[in-house]
Structures are given as structure tokens and as C-alpha cells.
Amino acid sequence: MAMLNSNGFVLTTVDELLSWGRRNALWPLTIGLACCAIEMMHAAASRFDLDRLGVIFRASPRQADLLIVAGTVVNKVAPMLKLLWEQMPDPKWCITMGGCASAGGPFPTYSTLQGMDRIIPVDVYIPGCPPHPQGLLYGILQLQKKIKEKGVKKYDKAFEEFKKDMERQGLIPREITV
């Protein structure tokens, strides 16, 4: 936790600072699949105004770090969504909005994916058919809480990869001794 001492300095850890920045600027990818997308639009529009939480919809997966799966994921869309998920840079999070995306919802049929977590790991499941925009807001707040508690350690796979890459190329950073 950040602490303010009497001299006006803020003491915190890098992890905490990063997680603070990340959880307060969650940029979701603009994807609407079905009914829930309408409620997602409502959450972003005049009345609920997601912008005030730092949630700003981005049209490119390269700029997004949150995937809100709003609506029924049918089998045909599943590989496309997975591709988009893989195109998003780490760290990234996933919210499934509504019953369909969470577990198939009212569609136990041949063409529907029975839960988004079968193709990508999910952080927050929001129930509802569709959830109220307030439900989505609550889900986002829960995700912020989760990021705060868990930090970003879970997601520094990319850093490890980067480190391994450096080692492979013989560019091992020298330890600085003071």
C-alpha cells in the first residue's frame, strides 16, 4: 500500500504503482456479440457513463487490455475471439457478460459455445440475461478489486519470455552493484 509520510513523500512499490495504473485505465475492446452488447452500449452511453471509471472502448486489440465478451459466443465466432484475445498485449483480463458468455446461458444447442472459459481464461463472470448496466459496472469494479489484490504478478509471463529471449541472444543484463 502507498503511504504518505509527514514530508509529503509517497512510498509505494512498483507493483502497487503498476497495478494502480492498470486497474484505473481498463481499456476494453469494442466487441458486441448479442443482446448484452446493447446493455454494454448503454453502460458506455449517457446515463451510466463508463468513461468516468477510466474505461474507454478501443477499436483495436493492440490497444486493449480488457475483453468484455458481451453476448452469445457461437462456435463459429469462438476461434475469432480467441485470435483477438491472443492479439491483445499482456497483461489482459476477460469479463464474460451475461449467461451465454459465462456458461452457454439459455442456448444448450449444437451451435453455441457453452462458456467462454472453454477457450480463454475468464476473470469475472457477470450473471444476467442480459445484466443491467449496473451489473457490468459492478463487474468492472470487482475486476479492479481483483487486480488490486492479486497484483500483476500473475501476468508477468511476458517479462519472463522477454528475459529468456535476452538470454538466448546473449544479452544478459549486468547486475548493478552499489
Binding site: 452469445t72 457461437v74 463459429k76 465466432v77 439459455p106 442456448f107 444447442t109 451451435s111 453455441t112
Partner: peptide, 22 residues
């Protein structure tokens, strides 16, 4: 077909009143 959920198949498998929410 990116949102084909099989409504007509569901309709054949549920009662008339059950299809209403679909």
C-alpha cells in the same frame, strides 16, 4: 451465422410458452 444459436431447433424441443423468452 456468427450469432446462429439454433432458435428453430430449440423451438421444436420446448413447449409453446417456453419459447416465448427466446
Amino acid at each position: 451465422g456468427q450469432l446462429h444459436r439454433g432458435m428453430e431447433k430449440i423451438a421444436e424441443n420446448v413447449y409453446y410458452f417456453q419459447f416465448l423468452p427466446y
